[in-house]
């Protein structure tokens, strides 16, 4: 099997997984019962979706510097996302929003 075909197959798999995680993040945002659980869906699922998509794009670009730039963008999104997530969760706790704890669903 030629090398390019191997890379293409890996890229297809990465893109499929990326779409799956983006979908899961949005479904979680719609279905989960309270702010905290929605934050879980948002930070983890979507950052993973972006990571898989940018890995696929990096493989396709075939250049080290572009791959490094995509990795840098992903790292910035992770750091910004984690910080924003902590800020929102912390403000929600401080303003007295109680976490949902099972029951009526």
């Amino acid at each position: 099997m030629p090398w390019q075909t191997v890379i293409d197959v890996i890229t297809y798999a990465l893109f499929a997984a990326s779409g799956f995680f983006f979908l899961a993040g949005s479904v979680g945002l719609v279905r989960f019962p309270d702010v905290y659980t929605r934050l879980h869906a948002l930070t983890k699922s979507d950052n993973l979706g972006l990571g898989l998509a940018s890995t696929g794009l990096a493989l396709q670009s075939g250049s080290w510097i572009v791959a490094a730039k995509l990795l840098l963008i992903w790292m910035i999104v992770i750091v910004a996302g984690a910080t924003a997530c902590y800020l929102v969760a912390n403000s929600a706790r401080n303003s007295g929003i109680e976490p949902w704890t099972g029951g009526d669903r």
Binding site: L29, R38, N47, G49, V77, V88, I97
Partner: peptide, 18 residues
């Protein structure tokens, strides 16, 4: 609540990058 609305805006930040 407003927080839930803001979460969608944060989601679109990530999706926008992708």
């Amino acid at each position: 609540t407003g927080t839930d609305r803001m979460l969608s805006a944060m989601l679109f930040g990530t999706s926008g990058v992708a």
